[in-house]
Write a protein that binds this DNA or RNA. Structure first.
Lengths: 222, 222
DNA sequence: TGCTGGCGTTAGAAGCTATAACAAACATGA
DNA sequence: TCATGTTTGTTATAGCTTCTAACGCCAGCA
């Protein structure tokens, strides 16, 4: 109320518009959480919001455009989560558990990014930019872990990475750190996606402990 | 011609029926390969086969039923691949590369089994039975690898497995082997699914070598 | 006050899954 | 050989989807 600076004067129209867009996205997330991205229906969302079908196309040009926006938000959220964990000095284990919490919080959101790709789809350029942010935070954390990793069974690949490191942006991490970051990515995704997809249900063991074990082996040198 | 034993006398009707079913599945696989499981259209398949829409429902009760059948066939094929690799004395590395070849051969087929789960879907009981076969073959291979795995960073979880091993069926493998089989599953799936989903494209490094590296670290004790 | 741009509406095309009702072909028993 | 019943195909139809087109209205701005 006291912050009546009109510097950020948004027209009431824009205000309304972004409000409706947010409502639509909120409903979309509900639908995705309970039926997956496949089960997302623009029609159903419109009806839920009290407006009739095609009105929704004033806010999102197509179903794909809405989903792309959700994917973008998801990348953004994951990047923020990673950045926060990295800046708070969390180690590899801390980052891993932050990732798992984020994933378990809404499995379908995780699958929106790391799930089955639809063959034709190409993510817009700005999304791959956010993906770079995620990688940067991961590299920061890996670089801050114990400086010298014990010689690994894959020394050859680590050497290969020293000559193919463009994907790390300008990050100054040595190849061993690059290798560790890749291992973090592949292994955490491996356990997590199987867990989220329910492939472990009914197997009897404690899924928390499996994840912790995999984190321990990743963090303990190797 | 010489094998005119009428023991396996299938009525020409059944013969025709199973032929049409096979045709339908073949077209379905084409569609899935090029547009993913989401893009599978019964109508389009029917038209391709020269019959009109609803005729297809004589052969598959519903879209879900067809997809379930494809999933079943996929599990069956993967189980056979694993069994063959295991029986041919392939080690952990051999099994891993057999898996990767099988996956790269048709990525969407891989995702049909290990991709984004649709929230409501529950696989029929016989499919989980085939999944058990896959696990058994994996356990065989892991058991045949070096008998004693070095002490790992996750000894606690291995101990936990010794008391939660029902999922291994009656397999006599010691807990360390169970641990290794789980690691095989999660790690190979981690690298593979990221590779198949295209998350590594444009990163510049050699994806074969990443896979080999991960296999090497898995096989080299730990 | 009057104009214009954004918003919401209904109508409709084209696609999909799936069911119902009906016709033809086929296999088999009397 | 003829009749019966099963199996396979057809068209029609309901109900859903995405998305375009044409129209009316109303709010905000000059």
């Amino acid at each position: 109320m006291a912050m009546a600076a009109d510097a950020d004067a948004v027209s009431p129209r824009e205000r309304y518009r972004s409000q409706v867009r947010a409502d639509i996205k909120a409903r979309a997330w509900e639908q995705i959480a309970k039926a997956g991205a496949t089960g997302l229906s623009l029609n159903a969302i419109a009806k839920e919001l009290g407006m009739s079908g095609p009105a929704l196309y004033r806010y999102f040009g197509s179903r794909d455009e809405l989903i792309t926006e959700l994917i973008r938000d998801t990348y953004r959220g994951l990047a923020d989560t990673f950045r926060a964990a990295a800046d708070s000095g969390a180690g590899i284990g801390g980052l891993a558990h932050a990732l798992r919490r984020w994933a378990l919080d809404d499995p379908q959101r995780y699958f929106l990014v790391y799930g089955t790709p639809v063959p034709g789809y190409q993510a817009p350029a700005d999304i791959t930019g956010i993906a770079q942010e995620i990688m940067a935070a991961l590299l920061d954390v890996c670089a801050a872990a114990e400086p010298e990793a014990p010689p690994s069974a894959s020394a050859g690949f680590t050497a290969h990475l020293s000559q193919h490191r463009e994907w790390a942006g300008g990050h100054p991490a040595p190849p061993g750190v690059l290798r560790r970051a890749l291992a973090f990515w592949t292994r955490m995704h491996g356990v997590l996606s199987l867990e989220l997809a329910g492939h472990f249900t009914g197997m009897g063991f404690d899924q928390d402990r499996l994840f912790d074990a995999e984190v321990a082996e990743l963090a303990s040198g190797r």
